[in-house]
Design a protein around this nucleic acid. Sequence first.
RNA 1: GGGGCCGUAGGGUAGCCUGGUCUAUCCUCCCAGCUUGGGGUGCUGGUGACCUGAGUUCAAAUCUCAGCGGCCCCA
Length: 468
Amino acid sequence: MRDRWRNSFSEWYAEQLDRAEILDVRYPVKGTYVWRPYGFRIRANVLKLIRQILDEAGHEEALFPLLIPEHEFAKEARHIAGFEDEVYWVTHGGRSELGVKLALRPTSETAMYPILALWIRSHADLPLKIYQVVNTFRYETKHTRPLIRMREITTFKEAHTAHASAEDAERQVQVAVECYRRFFDALGIPYIISRRPEWDKFPGAEYTIAFDTIFPDGRLLQIATVHNLGQNFSRTFEITFETPEGRQEYAYQTCYGISDRVIAALLALHGDDSGLCLMPEVAPLQVVVVPIWFKERKEEVDREAEAIVRELSCFRVHLDTRELRPGAKYYHWELRGVPLRVEIGPRDIENRQVTLVRRDTGERITVARSALRQEVERQLRSIGDALRERAWQEMRSMLREAGALEDIEKAVGERCVALAPWCGSKECDETIEAHAGVGVGGVMEAEPGRCVVCGRSTKHRGIVGRSY
RNA sequence: GGGGCCGUAGGGUAGCCUGGUCUAUCCUCCCAGCUUGGGGUGCUGGUGACCUGAGUUCAAAUCUCAGCGGCCCCA
């Protein structure tokens, strides 16, 4: 059942964060939230995954300070122009005013790059690939939403690289895109990869590649960005290296990041009217064991349940021994998205079997006691695959090819996202926006076609949809 | 950026318009005891709330203003 999930998504989403104990939204500062232990474990598992992917791709983790002095923050004109309305400033230390105002990082370029300028001296120091996982602050004026638009982003996974040539930086953009593909694939989050329009790119970047997903309400959510910074920041921050020939040259840089939104997507895309349905990859508990007690046979069932838990110790498994009826436990764990439930009762013991129940389909599976571990492993893999497949199908069902302005209008009106041939001009984007209420959010390579506004031939398609 | 609505136990609500009858309603959660046990067991008892500040008034959950917080619509 996905009625509420689909038709009252906003409500559904807020309710799950609370009921599944992901976040406490009652913290009394707007746009900031408390991670509860269960949510925090999901977050930790997601971080483990991204760290693994970035490490394997040759990045090293580091950690830069939260505070950025005003003069560094203001160095790159376009960068500050893009962020200055959203910056929190620390102006006092105790009661005395600071001589130099300190920005709480809205992103870390200006914290890192003065130091990278010191670290990078020769071509032998390149390429340099680092990342950090930090909180960042933005004074959002639009409607804040847990994990989607927050004033304190708690889990910004930002990578920064420096290269000796434009070509190498360009290759790194592709590497980053591949890393993120792997990451989202592992989480079963479907995505559209596009280039942001000129007027929508990261402040200070040459260009920006973005990953978007589509929520059940038909709205686009940006879940990752990859920027080619060219030499824009290296010129500003004097990040130079000595070439093999002995010249000094500015480094070529990229940066890319993913915020808490990946967790918003993870939770939002895999749920149903009964609650969350977590990807086995990151679920805090992959298997919950529910003993079915009867008066005289409680000890016997408990012994068997404990044996099962031991046998499944290679998974994240939990034995629920609370004094509740089995049904109450089923609801409890379904809400929290545990992918697989194991039931063990007198009937199972007699038949030397175990009952499995899948969270995604609700299917009950009776397996021989001896085949349990193997079957659990198989089912968990199958659940992950099914969730990924379902999410991709769901997203595709909300994408509409549009050959004309009216098609875009219709698609957006029906809570869908339109893909339409577009010449790339600001004028045509404005016409689209005038008709559909939203402009072009991203650009993709496509078969040759004619711009839906001006009719000029183009090899690009614009993504048009309401967004978060 | 513009406009509107709202804030009552942990969560959801009634009461507010027309100030007193509020020792503040109901559901849920929580706690204790008994009971029950293959999809939210039942019974009994219990804990727990008027966002903050200022004002009007004999009297404020109720009216006014401000702050903080939440929600919605439009750009």
